[in-house]
Design a protein around this nucleic acid. Structure first.
Length: 917
DNA sequence: TCTGGAGCAA
DNA sequence: ACGTTGCTCCAGAA
């Protein structure tokens, strides 16, 4: 059950605290007696349909949803107001029932189902599934029988039962424990009918209601009664003779016209009574206990309500389940009480107990980095906190040796913990799980892996974290007590999550990836981030001045060309100048008008030769570079170095990403851009930078995965791949492959790994679609293995629901079966690309572990600084160059065993630019 | 504060 | 509709 109150530590309860438990007004379990809510699905759906305007509830896809909406709203209101502990919905099937088989006119003559109603029952069933509410339908029986059986079972178990039905036959079910809610108008809530209200209305007790209905008839079911007999007469007879049986025994005693009428229609009455008798002893596919009201499946609700365009209802639903039920979950997930230990002996005593322990490191901002100030150690039933600011030497050393030991630990964000601890000279070993990484391996395309979110999604337990909510800063008036309590809470959640993830990891084949790749890599990355890369302040200053001057010159010239000023950085203003003022031809349409991107400006310049365009492009380039240099300058730390941060759980393919600043997108293609790489230099005391990159790793993976004989042969012979492919595609000797041919097949080869279409290829190569199509065909004729592989990947992914890298890293692609063509085709392209990009990511990660391992094993001072997807940048200590070159080539080259060799290129220099090649 | 456009890398 | 994975900046709207 989703609750934000469950995770409250014992110690927190004593102090006033934002997340202290409050007694909810509507605890779902406040009553000792279970309360079962049974809903007649079809009748309520119809009520909802006629209660809600048809034309106000249509999705963009054209699906009517008024009945779904009304039904769901009604259900939420019921749950909120009636507070059932158990909920179940019964549906009719379209198949014949024992009633329609006996009496073919049964329920005939009803109006045809309106077209707009079509499909809404299925949607309601889907909503119920997302809400984890069971639905029951049984072939050959009506929902009424299911409801009667459920009511009987509930009553037998001593429960209270509330039946919601638009069918009066349900009145016969009413007892002390069973009441019926029969909406008279629409679906608005009215008080339920009990025995007294049935008697008041029909003058018979509920158990005689069926007798009355048999005599009177039921229009809705097309069951004619005795002409001339209404409820009053029927009730009189029933009370006089003690029920229908008594009436039938005394048929002749009833006088008058109505008596004759009764005798004439006695068979109808008997039939009516047989038909309106509800079965109470059916075998149901869902046992009563399974109707327990649970938390909705959040993801499923999100997805379904998105497609139904139910935004208000979604909020109502989550509000309802967010504030409900605290007791049960609270007991199941009780954060252990903690104490702050100040003595080494006390800590050692606590640590002597066995069991997995979560470690949460509290840190404080220290310049651009973080420094550990406290450590919370949490086991399932007990927790301690060490305050590093006040700890004496003995305590800190006791903690340090335990942290460095191989005692098994669970953390959230291992890399950050390592970095914060390392500032204090502490290490952290024995980590068997980092929930931010295991969460990622299980579900690699989430946007965030914050503890609170993982907890919500996977454990259905929400919690508040005052530290996270105040954006990680500790000095915002938060008491120490609060931060310690929060740290304990985070540790406890990490512990629960880790336990929850363990079987999922195994099931998804990700346990090995976590243990042998991601976790050890986190430690390597932490070290790289802490090390950073040196910069040249002088070059930085010169470059900034140069780019600023170039930018200003271009801006002045641009203004001169049009005779006035304009914000060159505003696409909106540029559109005005280009397409209205200058009347240039329109470019490709975008959301906000017409694009002013570089490719379009280039095309416009070639067409018109307008000076403004040339200056605008020059300005764009210079200001981009200037801005980039400025960003780098701002990110220089006190040690004069730049420390990027690698995100290990952002790219859904398994790649790393780099931020603050991003050092994976430093320019390299143009001469001017490469000057930015000159800023990043070798540290003082070191000999040079070494850049090592894989040559065409993605194409080699393509060769491996496809097993294409041609590609494998090309690599085996060490040929220039694109020249080789070109010679085959164009049918000429390798020596006769022109540079135009080579660049075509190069674009083609890489495009294939991205799901390129003929259209895209034609655009990129500036050739006709026909020409592109021919190129694709010729390519596939020669390299059929590639075509077969690419086809197979998508097919397999559709079957499995996911793609895999060589190492088994998965990416789930539910959109492969989406009805939305755009989404589906995107998923197909992702399916083509992920195994290739992801396998490359796995390989370089292995290489990094190998390189870091060898550097350490050989006790070298050279160090790894950066990773740029297929490239590693190292810094070489004097005298170690040859050793490091050899180990880097060896480790990178042997990081995977492919059908083709992995080739590594090396470059050396005093700056990153110089080390490039 | 958020979105779209733009542009840099692999 | 038309090539994947990222990050960051700016302008302009809210």
């Amino acid at each position: 059950m989703m609750t934000r109150l469950a995770l409250v530590s014992e110690s927190a309860k004593t102090a006033p605290q934002s997340n202290a438990p409050t007694t909810p007004e509507s605890g779902l379990s406040e009553d000792a007696t279970p309360r079962l809510l049974v809903i007649d699905g079809h009748s309520m759906a119809f009520r909802a349909f006629y209660a809600m305007p048809v034309d106000k509830f249509v999705t963009q896809a054209g699906q009517h949803t008024n009945a779904v909406h009304g039904f769901t709203a009604m259900l939420l209101t019921m749950i909120k107001e009636r507070k059932p502990s158990h909920v179940v919905v019964a549906f009719d099937l379209d198949t014949p029932t024992f009633r329609s088989l006996e009496y073919t006119e049964y329920k005939a003559g009803r109006n045809k189902t309106p077209e707009e109603f079509y499909g809404q029952i299925d949607l309601i069933i889907k909503v119920m599934a997302a809400m984890n509410i069971p639905t029951i339908s049984v072939d050959g029986f009506e929902a009424d029988d299911i409801i009667a059986t459920l009511a009987a079972q509930g009553e037998a178990a001593g429960w209270d039962v509330l039946v919601v039905s638009g069918d009066r036959d349900a009145f016969q079910l009413i007892t002390d424990k069973v009441s019926v809610l029969y909406p008279t108008k629409g679906i608005s809530a009215i008080p339920p009918m009990d025995a007294a209200s049935v008697e008041a209305k029909y003058f018979v007790p509920p158990n005689r209601y069926s007798d009355l209905a048999a005599l009177v008839g039921e229009t809705a079911d097309n069951l004619p009664g005795v002409p001339g007999v209404g409820p009053k007469t029927a009730a009189k007879w029933i009370n006089q003779y003690g029920g229908l049986e008594g009436i039938l025994e005394n048929l002749d005693a009833i006088g008058g016209k109505v008596g004759e009428s009764l005798r004439a229609h006695v068979d109808d009455v008997k039939r009516n009574r047989r038909l309106n008798h509800l079965l109470r002893d059916m075998e149901l596919p869902v046992p009563l206990e399974q109707t327990l009201l649970q938390a909705p499946d959040r993801d499923a609700v999100e997805e379904l309500f998105d497609s139904l365009e139910f935004n208000q209802l979604r909020k109502r639903l989550f509000d309802l389940f967010g504030e409900a039920e605290t007791d049960d979950a609270g007991e199941a997930h009780q954060v252990p009480a903690h104490r702050v230990v100040t003595e080494a002996a006390a800590l050692q005593a606590w640590l002597a107990v066995d069991g997995v322990c979560a470690v949460d490191v509290l840190s404080e901002k220290l310049g651009l980095a973080h420094e550990a100030v406290g450590v919370a150690l949490v086991r399932a039933d007990s927790a301690v906190v060490v305050d590093l600011r006040t700890a004496d030497e003995a305590l800190e050393s006791a903690l340090a040796s335990w942290l460095a030991s191989d005692a098994t630990k669970v953390v959230h964000e291992y890399k950050e913990a390592l970095k914060a601890l390392s500032v204090r000279g502490l290490s952290l070993a024995g980590v068997q799980d980092d929930t931010s990484l295991s969460g990622y391996l299980i579900q690699p395309d989430r946007r965030s892996y914050e503890l609170a979110e993982l907890s919500k999604v996977h454990l259905k337990v929400g919690f508040e974290d005052s530290v996270q909510e105040s954006s990680g800063q500790l000095d915002l008036g938060l008491s120490e007590d609060t931060s310690f309590a929060d740290a304990v809470q985070r540790g406890y959640v990490a512990l629960l999550l880790s336990e929850h993830f363990a079987p999922l990891l195994v099931e998804r084949g990700a346990a090995v990836l976590l243990r042998e790749l991601e976790l050890p890599l986190a430690a390597v990355l932490a070290q790289m981030e802490l090390t950073g890369i040196a910069i040249s302040q002088e070059r930085l200053a010169v470059l900034l001045a140069d780019f600023t001057a170039a930018m200003n010159a271009a801006q002045a010239a641009a203004f001169a060309a049009i005779g006035h000023e304009v914000n060159l950085g505003s696409p909106k203003q540029l559109q005005e100048v280009l397409f209205e003022e200058l009347g240039l031809p329109k470019t490709k349409k975008i959301k906000t008008g017409y694009t002013t991107d570089a490719a379009s400006l280039k095309a416009l310049l070639e067409k018109t030769g307008h000076e403004f365009l040339a200056q605008l492009m020059a300005h764009r380039e210079a200001s981009k570079l200037k801005q980039m240099v400025e960003t780098l300058k701002k990110s220089v730390a006190e040690d004069g170095r730049i420390h990027t941060t690698y995100a290990q759980n952002v790219a859904a393919t398994g790649r790393l990403s780099s931020n603050n600043p991003n050092l994976q997108n430093i320019p390299v293609r143009t001469e001017e851009g490469r000057r930015v790489r000159d800023i990043l230099v070798v540290s003082e005391g070191y000999e040079c930078l070494l850049a090592a990159d894989y040559s065409q790793i993605e194409m080699r993976i393509m060769a491996h995965l496809s097993g294409d004989a041609g590609l494998i042969q090309a690599y085996a012979e060490g040929e220039d791949l694109h020249r080789y492919v070109g010679s085959h595609v164009f049918g000429v000797a390798p020596a006769d492959v022109t540079s135009a041919m080579r660049s075509k097949v190069k674009a083609m080869s890489y495009g294939l790994a991205y799901g390129l279409t003929s259209f895209g290829l034609s655009k990129q190569l500036e050739i006709s679609v026909d020409e592109a199509r021919t190129l694709v065909k010729d390519y596939f004729d020669r390299f059929g293995g590639v075509r077969d592989y690419l086809r197979g990947v998508v097919e397999q992914a559709r079957v499995d629901g996911y793609t895999s890298t060589i190492e088994g890293r998965r990416r789930y692609l539910p959109d492969l079966s989406s009805a939305d063509r755009q989404l589906r085709e995107l998923a197909e392209r992702i399916a083509l690309n992920s195994p290739i990009q992801g396998s490359a990511a796995d390989i370089i990660k292995h290489a990094m572990l190998g390189v870091a391992g060898e550097l350490q094993r050989q006790d070298l001072k050279s160090r790894m600084l950066l990773q740029v997807h297929d490239e590693l940048i190292l810094e070489i200590w004097p005298g170690e160059l040859e050793t490091v070159k050899a180990l880097v080539v060896e480790q990178m080259g042997s990081a995977a065993d492919l059908l083709v060799p992995l080739e590594v290129q090396l470059g050396l220099g005093a700056s990153w630019n110089d080390a490039g090649h």
